[in-house]
Structure formats: C-alpha cells, structure tokens
Computed example of a mutant assay.
Amino acid sequence: MRKRSRTPEIIEAMSRAQQIAFGPFVFAACVSAKRLGMLKVLGQSGGLTREELAERMHLSPYGVKVLADMLVPAGVLRSEAGKLFLTKVGECLEWDPLTGVNLDFTADVCFKPLAHLEEAIREERPAGLSEFGPWPTVYEAMPHLPPQVLASWLRFDHYYSETAFREALKHLAGLAPRRILDIGGNTGRFCELALKALPQASVTLIDLPGQCAMARSNAALAGLGERFATAPVDWLDPEAMPETGGPADLIWMSQFLDCFSPDECRSILARAQRLLAPDGTIAILECILDNQDYEAAHMSLAATSLYFTAVANGNSRFFRRDELAAILADSGLDIEREIHPIGASHTLFLCRSAREDGAC
C-alpha cells in the first residue's frame, strides 16, 4: 500500500475498509453469540464479567472471551469496569423481529452460497445454489431445501409480505374482483388472505409444480372447494401457458417480476395479458430500490439482489422505478395507479393492458 499522510479522512477510510475486510467475522460472531444465548443473557442481566457470563452459558471462558473480543469493537457489546453489557445494536440483534429474520436469512440461506458470488456474476447463474443441491434455480429447489434453510427463507418472505398483503388487499377490494390469478403465489399465503378479505372471489395460484403442491398442502386453503385452485407452469418456457379455465378480473404478482431478467419479464407479462378479462387489472407489488425512505431499507434490498444472483436465479434483481416502468410500457401495460408505501418497503402498481388484443 502506498504511504499516505494519516489525515482524519484517511484514518476513517482505513477503519471502514477494515470493517469491510473482516465483515464476515463480525457477522459470524453475532450469529454465534445470538444462537448460543450470549446476547440474551447479557441483555437480561444488566452486565456480567466474562467469567460470570461463561458460567451462566455453560461455556469455557475462552469461548466467551473470543466472541467478546470481536463484538466489543463491532459495537454489539460494551466493556466497562471489567463487565460486558449489551448495546442498543446488540438489543436489535437479539429482540428486533426485522433484524432477526434478516440475520437468519443471511446466515442460513445466503452465507455459504455467497462464496460463489464471483462465479455467479461471471456466468449469470445461481452458482451458490450448489451448496444445497443440483437445481437450476431456487424455485425448483424450494420443496427440497434443508429444514432450517427453508424455515429461514419462509420467515424472511412472510415477514415482509404479511403486512404488505393486508394493506394491498384494502386497495384491491375496491376493484371487486370475482376471479383472481395469483401468479408466483408460492406457499399460497396471499390466496389465504384474499379469500378471507374478498368473500365473493375465487383464486387460482399459478406457479411451478412444487410450489403448487406446497400450496395445496396448506391447511388454511384446504376445504375451499372451487374457490381455490392451482395451475402449474414454468414461465421460463417462452411458449408455456397455464390452464386457468377462463379470464380473470385481477392478476396479482407479488415480488414475482424481480425473480426474472427484464426480457423474461416482458415475455411473462405479454402472456399474462392473454389471461386477463377485458377491463381487468394486473396488480404488481414490488420493492423498488430507489423508492425507499431509509438508507437501511435500500441496503437491505441491494443485499437481497445479491441473493437473487448467487442463490435464486443468477440474473435478476430489485428494479429501480424507471426500469420497472419501462418494462411495463414495453409489455403494453399502462400504470393507472401507483401506491407507496405498502407495508415496510413495497409499492403497488395497478395496471391495465394498453393493447386492443391483449385480453382473451
């Protein structure tokens, strides 16, 4: 490294650079401290010596000390008068639900696969998915993922979608849809909420065969008869069309388009319009990268885009607003209404087909 004068700016830059260089160590120490119970014990105790903490946790003093040596400079713990205390950052890691689902998602779903990120970027394929098995994308892999990986993935997905779904349904109720297609419906959580909120409606979930099977096994959707159905399809086949039994008043896509490349999105949207009734609506719920109110939200979305790269599919990311708008316009869709925020970080786009021959 070139010799430089140690100005405050250079010292700050060097400090930040070391935080990045050793970032994986900080993360691993935080996950271990939380899962071993160290953060909880400290938070409930009001401060303990390292020896007292080791005794409470039934760990060796070495184990406690090596974690504390990392977590004090990381700002997770504070050392004062020979005792360790939990900081506000540590409290967030231990008790904040949002931080918890993010931490588990990163630790269980992403941490090992991210070692393959360079390969994934070079080849535009989810190279990190090989850590779990030989699938082309995470969507085929979903029913076969290790239990802890799947559980952390579902908690992450449901935490952000739950509130957004409930808020979005308040806006969709005004459309009074009788027939809904949930494209990319995954486990069927939106279907479940929609069927409760819209008693006049029926919903068909459209997804890969494995996801359709998972949704049919959802106890909350069982026994609904003709109000709930599934239609398997692989949208990556450019000729594929699901058998839906007729046109829909409303097509719902929640964080679905961000799972595909722009060209794949255009192909899917063109085919989806063939499933739409005249004057029907396509409702698209997405997290827009440059439409976030907090820096931490922007960073979280950017990080999740790297999950798409290394684990999910290798070629998708969260869109910026102008990127998604261009895709919708290219696909013959007009944005009639745009609602933000929906939930913690989503935007709802209500669209209609601009093509005269776009509906069935």
Rank of each mutant, 00 (worst) to 15 (best):
M57D: 14
I288N: 00
L193T: 00
A197F: 06
L289R: 04
P199I: 09
E243H: 11
R337T: 08
D104K: 01
E80M: 12
T244W: 10
Q19G: 15
I11T: 07
P209F: 01
V203F: 13
R337H: 12
R166T: 13
M70Y: 13
D108G: 04
V138P: 00
V89A: 14
L333I: 04
L48Q: 08
A272Q: 02
E94T: 00
L198S: 15
Y139R: 11
D108T: 08
A28S: 13
T244G: 09
L275C: 13
C92E: 05
W135G: 10
S331P: 10
H340I: 04
E162D: 06
T304A: 02
L71C: 12
P126E: 10
I335A: 12
A248K: 04
A168Y: 09
C92R: 05
T230H: 09
W153M: 09
D69V: 10
A107S: 15
A201M: 04
N218C: 03
R274S: 08
A296F: 07
A270S: 11
L93Q: 04
L306K: 04
D182Q: 08
T347N: 06
G184E: 12
F22K: 13
P73V: 14
E118F: 03
G184P: 04
R337Q: 15
V311M: 14
V101L: 14
K196I: 01
V311Y: 09
A215L: 05
K196T: 09
L257Y: 01
L145H: 02
L257F: 06
S305A: 11
P262N: 11
M70R: 07
P126W: 12
N291E: 03
M142F: 02
C287L: 01
R352V: 00
Y307K: 02
I180P: 12
L150H: 05
S267Q: 14
L205W: 02
V311C: 15
L193D: 10
K88F: 00
K34D: 14
E51P: 02
H171D: 14
D249K: 05
I11M: 06
R155M: 03
F85P: 02
A240D: 15
A201I: 10
K83V: 05
A312C: 13
T106H: 15
A277V: 03
C212Q: 07
L175T: 06
A21C: 05
L53Q: 12
T99K: 01
G246P: 06
D330F: 00
K170Q: 12
P146L: 02
A115E: 11
P278K: 05
Q255K: 06
P24Y: 15
